[in-house]
């Protein structure tokens, strides 16, 4: 196992993504009911700015909660290498916020000419693994800390694939010393789209490297579209809750769990109710049989 950076210690809390519509909830003053979470996660790129209110709000939230920086644009799978401007601005934000950890996705988003602003799928090949690992080494060295990478949801696989996604991720963590952010909804979506067993995915991962779990909603398949789409615009589906229960029972240590909602964002009470459900499932998993 490559381990150039300080290990990331397990953190067993429950949190939410910080979204503009909930700023006031997170910044409740003394005497007001605060948001009962153990951490807040933010989309890094939204705060990789020079100044202004948004950045000040994040600093105020950081005074109240541990914060996780979760990126969507690192493009760790780009064969053309990382965008050094992105990396430098991320480092600046990381220094400013002192987050619990920094994460991004196992995907690519851009070429040298264009950016898709979507999490595009990696071919699961040795060549892709080498490119990903070289980029992770560069990112972790630049930030001076180990990172977490999230399994994406995907809508196609490539004919040239010669690894499963879990084998790819296991080898990626072994070669780079990075950690994993397990998106249970993404496993559910990809398992359904590509016809593998979600349980095989879980069993094939290096569970001791998982530090965080994401839970989110998806758009089910329809008669016209036999593909499930990861949408983050609705409640977590029952099948995803079941998979979460299985995952949490398998993990050798506590992890941070959060609900992700990016569209149709409801009042915070609705998200907190989902977070309570996660707490209940985790509590049950910890009760000895």
């Amino acid at each position: 196992m490559t381990q150039h950076h300080d290990p990331i210690r397990p953190f067993g809390g429950f949190g939410l993504g910080l979204r503009k519509t909930h700023y006031d909830d997170f910044l409740a003053g003394p005497g007001e009911a605060g948001v009962p979470v153990d951490f807040a996660e933010v989309i890094s790129e939204n705060y990789m700015v020079e100044g202004g209110r948004q950045l000040r709000v994040l600093e105020q939230v950081r005074e109240r909660f541990p914060v996780i920086l979760h990126g969507v644009s690192m493009s760790i799978g780009s064969a053309g290498g990382l965008d050094t401007d992105h990396l430098e601005k991320l480092k600046r934000l990381e220094r400013r916020i002192d987050p619990l950890w920094v994460s991004d996705h196992l995907c690519w988003t851009r070429t040298s000419a264009h950016n898709s602003h979507d999490l595009l799928p990696m071919p699961l090949t040795e060549a892709a693994l080498s490119a990903v690992c070289a980029n992770i080494d560069q990112a972790q060295d630049h930030l001076g800390r180990a990172m977490l990478f999230e399994n994406p949801s995907s809508y196609l696989t490539f004919p040239e694939d010669d690894l499963s996604e879990w084998e790819f991720m296991a080898e990626m963590t072994r070669r780079t010393g990075c950690y994993l952010l397990l998106d249970v909804n993404n496993i559910y979506v990809s398992a359904r789209n590509h016809g593998f067993a979600a349980e095989d995915y879980l069993a094939g991962l290096p569970l001791e490297r998982i530090r965080q779990i994401h839970l989110a909603g998806h758009d089910p398949a329809t008669p016209e579209r036999d593909i499930i789409i990861d949408t983050h615009d609705r409640k977590v589906a029952d099948g995803v809750w079941d998979l979460y229960a299985k995952a949490i029972a398998m993990l050798p240590h506590p992890v941070a769990t959060m609900i992700e909602r990016d569209e149709h964002i409801p009042p915070i009470a609705e998200l907190l109710a989902e977070l309570d459900r996660a707490r209940g499932i985790a509590d049950e998993a910890l009760v000895p049989a």
């Binding site: 064969a79 690519w108 000419a113 090949t125 060549a127 892709a128 080498s130 490119a131």
Partner: peptide, 14 residues
């Protein structure tokens, strides 16, 4: 090379 091939495939995909 494998790296150049991956780059070309990503460009074609995008």
């Amino acid at each position: 090379s494998e790296a150049a091939d991956l780059k070309a495939r990503q460009e074609a995909f995008l």
